[in-house]
Design a protein around this nucleic acid. Structure first.
Lengths: 139, 139
DNA sequence: TTATAAATAGAAATGATTTCTATTTATAAT
DNA sequence: ATTATAAATAGAAATCATTTCTATTTATAA
């Protein structure tokens, strides 16, 4: 938590109660959350927290690397906490039951891009992968 | 084209001018298109084509396997034609310049799911991957 | 040719996300 | 501690993709 709060300062973002609450929530939940869900879960503690504020906070936290966007089938915004050190490439596993997100430090970009080059004559520049399944607890 | 039109019949969908036009468009373009873009591109030929109709046609064509949804960063709907025989697992490469979509018959799901099982103690059930880059013509 | 269900147009609703403005607050300098 | 300042926030309103609804039109099988 403290490390994450320092990140705010490093990036000239003020340490406000709402930002702390959002970070704390993601740490507790460990799951991917939509802006709407974030608001609902913080409703009791922060009844005046507005949805636009939630959107802005999530956006800021993503920009400084505290959160990551997670792709979902419903094409809505979802974020989860990101504990991976900056710029360390990785993917995400999401439990389809409890929505917990785990970081996956496995990648085969080399093989993929070789395939793209040899078979399609194209140049792969980036890729993203989402893996869905059941986590340890939900199996 | 004829193969695709047969698919309509197989699935009890009528062979209408609008459906033919949409399929034809995707065949010509070979790129991923949003519903809005589909409408714009067909405006001249079908001035009365409504957006709700486009949405419904795209949805139907996806359900019968003529089109596939393509994931994009903007979290909007995008489709592209799918020439891969049913249920043959594959991924998609999208050119970031011209938006052309190419099917990628390469997958490393075995390795990924082994990693998920051994390192995270989770069970991977499905995954999706998008690869972005430059196609032959746009390099 | 006709009867029928399916397909469509167009208006309207929905709902996520963004923008805007006035007010409040964290923080650095005193 | 106080104060000045820019940054952060609330709340209303706008935007825009997507969906729903209803009346009308059309493809197709008999």
């Amino acid at each position: 938590m403290d490390t994450l709060l320092e990140k705010l300062k490093e990036n000239n973002l003020k340490n406000t109660p709402k930002r702390r609450a959002v970070i704390g929530l993601f740490l507790r939940e460990g799951a991917s959350l939509s802006p709407c869900r974030v608001r609902i879960l913080l409703k009791k503690k922060l009844p005046k927290l507005g949805l636009p504020t939630v959107y802005r906070i999530l956006d800021e936290l993503e920009k400084i690397g505290v959160l990551v966007k997670v792709q979902t089938d419903d094409r809505k915004l979802h974020y989860s906490i990101c504990s991976m050190p900056e710029n360390r490439h990785h993917h995400h596993f999401i439990c389809r039951k409890c929505k917990k997100v785990k970081e996956v430090e496995y990648c085969n970009f080399k093989d993929v891009s070789r395939f793209i080059r040899d078979k399609l004559k194209c140049v792969a520049e980036s890729h993203s992968m989402q893996i869905e399944g059941l986590c340890e607890k939900c199996i």
